[in-house]
Design a binder for these strands. Structure first.
Lengths: 188, 188
DNA sequence: CCACTAACGCAGCGATCAGTGCGATAATTT
DNA sequence: AAATTATCGCACTGATCGCTGCGTTAGTGG
């Protein structure tokens, strides 16, 4: 008890409340506009008292950050198909499918609108996954790709289409993007 | 007067109110968090009665759409340097400089968070400008690039970095992106 | 210059939000 | 099992938001 001052308590009840609140945020964002996403509204949907939300999260921005982080972290298994092209195609197709979901898009939009950290929360784990794929190829003895450059050319167009375009990209389009990237941009 | 039913009146006063409201939105987004962007707050900053905002725009979402559309439309002159590479580099460097501004980013974030149309309002005119550059090259007898593909590989990484990354891209990076695109992806 | 009417300001009314003590519950430690 | 305390529910308050009639101002066309 000599550590800083706080003592986290992730027990059964807190976890249940947290899960209910997260589900309520996702449901409300999927149903109505992001305007009505207030803490009392989330509390009513989650069956939790509003005071709890004010104490644990404080504002809708921090709540959205929390929801986005846990929603977009550890949700995709990075496959091992044996080759870099196969790994990237499988993975980016999964990302495209996830991003094409309207409910997922609504959460991303709300997180972005909540502040500069909201957008990062949506793609931080994607960068980690991409880095893992590239590192595995390197361990196999293949080419060493730059993670940043790969993110620019693979995740960039994908998320750009999702956010700034009337209709998001499809899984097939993502696979084509990977092959185009690997055949033309591989350190010319 | 046999047309539909409404008669627009873009006279001096309405235009002044509109300009003051737009400026107030930009200022408030630049100063504080997007949470406090309510119609009464904007009205107070603009020196306008809140009733006006409720009547003309109705909600912060529509107001943000209006502001974003007029902010990102017709703001960049598309240069004519004589070559496709020069045009694209000059133009994308200008876009990168614009997007790197924190205040501009705050407006984009808020517009995205206001709904699916908010993101499109930020890049609709960019697509038009890119199309004009490509069409001009075509008129010169040069290669015919696909506007959609060019937007994916040029605007995609740029806006992806701006929204989903801690620090946006620089003008130099944008120029490098153009040269990489033209030397490697030109219809291989 | 005058009539017309779109657009704005004013006053005010629920409804809801953000936030605060205080007691109760339950997770964790000893 | 008992003590400790993080976490939650309850009751409550001030402030603000969203919205609506109604009168006034000022662009616009004749």
């Amino acid at each position: 008890m000599a550590d800083s001052s706080t003592q986290v308590r992730p027990g059964g009840r807190s976890a249940k409340v947290r899960a209910a609140v997260h589900r309520a945020v996702a449901e409300l964002l999927a149903e109505e506009e992001a305007e009505t996403l207030t803490l009392p509204a989330v509390a009513a949907r989650a069956g939790v008292h509003p005071t709890t939300l004010y104490r644990r999260w404080g504002s809708t921005a921090q709540l959205l950050n929390d929801v986005a982080t846990s929603r977009f972290t550890g949700d995709l298994v990075v496959p091992d198909s044996g080759s870099l092209a196969g790994d990237l195609q499988r993975w980016l197709a999964d990302v495209a499918t996830d991003v094409a979901d309207p409910d997922t898009l609504a959460l991303m939009r709300a997180a972005i609108g909540s502040g500069p950290a909201g957008g990062c929360a949506c793609t931080e784990d994607r960068h980690r996954q991409l880095g893992a794929i590239i590192r595995r190829e390197q361990d196999r003895g293949g080419t060493a790709l730059d993670v940043e450059a790969a993110a620019d050319f693979l995740l960039g167009p994908l998320y750009y289409r999702a956010i700034f375009t009337p209709e998001p990209a499809s899984a097939d389009w993502a696979r084509t993007l990977v092959s185009t990237y690997l055949t033309t941009l591989r350190t010319p």
